[in-house]
Design a protein around this nucleic acid. Sequence first.
DNA 1: GTTCTATTTAAACGACCGGTCGGTATAATA
DNA 2: TATTATACCGACCGGTCGTTTAAATAGAAC
Lengths: 198, 198
Amino acid sequence: MSKRRFEGEQTKLLITNSAMGLFSRKGYSGASIQDICSAAGCSKGNLYYHFKSKEDLFVYLEEQSYAEWWRELDRLFSSCRTVTEKLYAYGQFSASIERSLYSAEREFINTVDADSEAMQRFKEIVTKNFEKTQKFICEGIADGEFKNEDPSELTFIIMSFFAALNHYALYLMDNEAGKDLFRKATTLLLHGISAGNE
Amino acid sequence: MSKRRFEGEQTKLLITNSAMGLFSRKGYSGASIQDICSAAGCSKGNLYYHFKSKEDLFVYLEEQSYAEWWRELDRLFSSCRTVTEKLYAYGQFSASIERSLYSAEREFINTVDADSEAMQRFKEIVTKNFEKTQKFICEGIADGEFKNEDPSELTFIIMSFFAALNHYALYLMDNEAGKDLFRKATTLLLHGISAGNE
DNA sequence: GTTCTATTTAAACGACCGGTCGGTATAATA
DNA sequence: TATTATACCGACCGGTCGTTTAAATAGAAC
């Protein structure tokens, strides 16, 4: 890798980091290319040298963040003995991810042309993520740790539970308080908020 | 109420309905004034006759939807014997609300000037809503129906739980399936997903 | 030292943004 | 019937949007 090429990759990294933060705070349309470039400290033309469009940049971000997400999560999972432990790990990891494209995603879905190549790729990424999550929830059902509910529905509920916590916690508390909240929330998710024993 | 005045109110209603749908689908910046006018079938000038700015329109929407939300919810609550029943009512009602400003809200917070009058009003509305919810959760803790957790945290968790379900369920299933999902989710929230008895 | 090519910049594009304004139509009033 | 207030229209403003382009820069290869 030549020095020139390395600097290029470095710039790309600056752009993706800035874009991630701005998309998550301002939403898909709210975060402008100019915003992102200013934050990354590069020119607009430079951004368009590295990415062919705004849609493309967004999908690239999705791809990268999900990949990183599962790389780290699989590592954490490998040292868990039970699926319940995995759920705690999932929760803790959700809390530690400080930036989420969560609300920008919906905007993206409803704004961008459904037939575009970017949208096709986007949908594949989201579907794949759901399936990976469902797989680990199914383990929990199969070995009797979780209740025998419809796996798809249960996955849906659990995923949205943590996504929402992340969404709200982000702009209300710091990272440490967030982790505590996620731990409590996970316990409640497991055992319920009801005081009675079933 | 004169005929002329009535027609005005009617138009305002058309605008708020269109705006509600577009803000919830496309986000705050994603939904343009022109979009909203086209959907409402009125001119831009007319919209700006009824609302003094886009921010103002958004906050008005928040105000209206929270007011309607609690008007209906208080009615449902009045026929509940336990707070647990109230929680189910809360869930069922969350499922029936087909449009939510949920993700546009965050964008609004991070986009709009923090000192603006619109933002001040917005924050008051959101805070008031949180307090009303917390009050009913506190009832559940006080009478021993819910676990004795920190009320603020518990409220936080429960609110984001239903908000997220609403957010995701919206573009994945129809209204009936949604209600079923919310009922199941409420049961899981109460008793947990764990198969073991504590 | 010259050439080549990957990276970067600044300027420019047309489309669209939120918002304004002069003007019009019509129901209510006097 | 003349006047007024309300409801509404659509052209237009300055500015910003996503995107394109031509030219500048600087490491790599000869």
